[in-house]
Amino acid sequence: MRNFIFILTKEIRSYFYSPVAFVVITIFSVLIGYYFYNIFAAFSTISFQAQTDPMVASQYGVLNVTEFVIRPFFGVVSIVMLIMLPMLTMRSFAEEKKTGTIELLLTYPVKDLELVLGKFAGCMGIFAIMLSLSVPCLLLVAFFGDPEWGVIVTGYGGLFLMGGAFISLGLFMSSLTENQIIAAVLSFASLMVLYMVGSSSGFVGEKMGQFLEYVSILSHFETFARGVLDTSDITYYLLFAVFFLFLSMHSLESKRWRA
């Protein structure tokens, strides 16, 4: 526990010593902020038009701010996460290997589990800061409109769980190589594959289709964005994270296996 806290604080500290955290957080905020502006502006324009023009009103049906703004917003946040989180995790082990600091770290009396969990929690901390910067957007919605708070809460819960899954995969990829670029590309590529497999579910047969749909990493988020808490989706993200943390731990441990 003690070692975990020391590693966690060191990780967060070093994210801010090097500009990585600042760059990643800034770009994340700019991207989602820009998207939020677009969707929110579009919503208000359409709302105005619907007030004056019954044709427009009938075209869109009931205009609901949660349906029209918040749900797509969460969708975009998850895509931006998919791009940005590998940038956050790529350095965690790869940099230590490159600079050789791993040699000292692995000769300290620290369990591999504590090391992996400490690094994971460090990334999660930065990710939490990143995610919290999207809250003002939703406060703006709440100021002008009347969103469903339940959807917002489950949405953030879902994003947080999904972020954990992304980060654990990124940590594992980083533990495989000493090259940060390779770590980032590998984790980005695997996340993309997990994202895209869902779309081929329609033409691979029923059983296989269901399987691919279940494997697909973003499809599990849709229930959260609808304000539904489905244990199968929660389990998916938790198992995903545990699985890759387990692999990272063994990837580290494998250095100590007898050849």
């Binding site: 003690r2 010593y17 791993i102 040699e103 000292l104 009396p109």
Partner: peptide
Amino acid sequence: YLPETVPLYTDMQVPVYLRFVAGLKG
């Protein structure tokens, strides 16, 4: 242990680094 290349976290201040190591070393 002092490895040959003396790998250290270059972006940390000396006492901050030593406190981190002291923590890990119990």
